[in-house]
Design a binder for these strands. Structure first.
Lengths: 343, 343
DNA sequence: ACAATATTATGAAACGTTACATGAAACTAA
DNA sequence: TTAGTTTCATGTAACGTTTCATAATATTGT
């Protein structure tokens, strides 16, 4: 007598259908099988409500259909939207995700990589900060936003072009004196590219610009002071500000409100990332949008690509500009440029 | 000769150490084994860099050490912080998470539950909206924020008390005329409890209040109109607003800025959820905080609890109030109450 | 109608574990 | 010294798949 509790196996289906085990396997995997057999097996599968055990499959194939994703956390909207799109992309291809949040802790990053390898994952996608991470040769790895050497492909958006685009937009919207704001030390090189692109753009467009890099400790206080110092007679001396992330831009926006500066009338503001933290109801900001869905797809694509030779060391995806209320609109822009021409 | 590429197995360790397979298994699982054997096995494990295959373990034990988590998405900060804490809690207990994002799609919710069962998960935690979800009897299930019948435990924060707390705070901070704002149809019952608690609080404290429930379609426009209608001679007729979520509160805050109302001087604002979307740099709002880490721990705890009898149908966790800049501070409050006494 | 060939179902072996029945060795007691 | 007992390593079976060599059947040509 068969246990009532445990789920039916291929053996049960084979017995029910009166066929051999291998035949059931073929039907399940869509391999060619005689029509009468196929029908009998399919009926039996329905009758028993049979479901394949993907872990047994994995054991046989020496694959786990699991990839590990390392991100600092899933709370920052940029990371959590990456998680969202990568997960969807993986599920599409019948892969599972082992989510590891590292809290920017280099040691934890290394530990999770070892843990993932213990779990026999088929690959790892990592948005990591540890400069000397070691990962097993035979475990495919794709890095996000940070180059980890020629053997490990890296997926990033075109940060330099993004900075340049921000400068171009501000210039086109009539700005003359702009500022670049950024937090934190220079450990991570991608934000530096944003700065470089912005500076490059400002130079070639003849914008005067100022760069302010805030300390990690209490940037909140620090940039409020910075902005206050640039306000004379209630009027801010910048007409455009580019923030290295949306997160920073939202904070600057709030501070500008406090300091009674109107956005975008007195000063225009552009962020970077393009994350709609709250969906359609987002507290919005004009921004340079990272193509997160495309980046996610590219990561998974590269990771699961069979041919090791076909893995470029860097894939750089294009950014776009999105209006979000903190810059002057297109219609305004035309008026503005007219006004400028007249003056 | 052994293949170079594939990972070492217990068999390899046994051969290397010159012991039987079962002995290796015992050492790996910490079962008692003679000291000399233990040393030899441990040396061999180190030498070969052996790692157990947890999928083979799972196949044998008929467990997958995987639980599925169903949430609408991982972008909304409330969901993504739930994901964060639940994931950490699961990893602590050596479980993996199968993350399923449903986009509020009832059909997709059902599909993912079936998919999870296909994947032989050991349990499911679901924050779902489908009113008639069917889940296999023998798959443990824990619901978040929604009761799904007596057999399925539900974890939620004390929404009623939260509404009440908001009313008490506003009253203590000197408010007399308050408003409740909420989006969407009444399908989900937890927000209704927030409203009920708030109303209850207002009644017992003698606050006059108004409730506004906005349509799902274009709430953005709708509440801007609602707020405008309550502004006479540049002054808003409410001195306190309670929003059903922080997401809504941030939007209201933005709108109030546009309408030239000062927060918290003209009108105080309290949200619900307590999510720090951007970490320490958060664009902040005073709020009723859901105990997300505790809720996460409780979900995992209930799910993995062996004794089926020990699963209460509802676990209601306490909320707290957190100051976030959109209400008058404690020091201000004293001044305010003095002012009120004097007038 | 029969042999030769093409087609297709069969079932055992293997994937890496764990559990359990078996048997060998070491110890105790007379 | 020997029988009885305890201790503990051993090795096989089983978990649910897939694969492949084998066997059974159907097809073709003469």
């Amino acid at each position: 007598m068969k246990k009532e509790t445990s789920a039916p196996t291929m053996k049960d289906v084979a017995r029910e259908a009166g066929v051999a085990l291998g035949t059931v396997s073929k039907v399940v995997n869509g391999l060619p099988v005689g029509d009468s057999y196929k029908v009998r097996v399919e009926d039996a599968i329905r009758k028993l409500n049979y479901q394949v055990n993907s872990y047994a499959q994995g054991l046989k194939a020496n694959k786990t259909y699991t990839i590990a994703l390392l991100v600092p956390n899933t709370i920052d909207p940029f990371y959590s939207s990456l998680v969202y799109y990568i997960n969807i992309e993986l599920l599409k291809r019948r892969y599972r995700m082992l989510l590891c949040t590292t809290d920017y802790n280099p040691q934890l990053e290394q530990e999770y990589i070892m843990m993932a390898q213990n779990n026999k994952v088929d690959g790892i996608i990592g948005l990591t900060y540890n400069p000397d991470l070691t990962v097993e040769e035979n475990t495919p790895f794709v890095a996000i936003d940070r180059s980890m050497g020629p053997k490990i492909p890296c997926v990033a958006c075109d940060n330099f072009a993004g900075g340049q685009l921000a400068a171009e937009k501000l210039a086109a919207l009539g700005c003359k004196n702009v500022a670049f704001l950024r937090i934190g030390s220079a450990l991570v090189n991608e934000p530096n590219k944003r700065k470089a692109g912005f500076e490059n753009g400002c130079l070639s467009l003849g914008l005067s610009y100022e760069c302010k890099i805030l300390s990690d400790d209490d940037p909140y206080e620090e940039f409020e002071r910075f902005l206050s110092e640039h306000i004379h007679n209630g009027k801010i001396s910048f007409d455009g500000i580019f923030c290295v992330t949306d997160r920073l831009a939202y904070q600057v926006l709030n501070t500008l409100h406090k300091l009674h500066q109107r956005v975008p009338e007195d000063v225009q503001l552009i962020g970077f990332d393009g994350i709609r933290a709250f969906g359609s109801l987002d507290y919005r900001c004009s921004t340079i949008v990272q193509p997160v869905p495309e980046m996610a797809e590219m990561c998974v694509d590269l990771l699961l690509r069979e041919n090791m030779m076909m893995k470029p060391p860097l894939v750089c995806l294009p950014v776009t500009y999105a209006y979000g209320g903190t810059t002057l609109e297109a219609t305004y822009r035309t008026e503005e440029s007219h006004a400028h021409r007249q003056s």
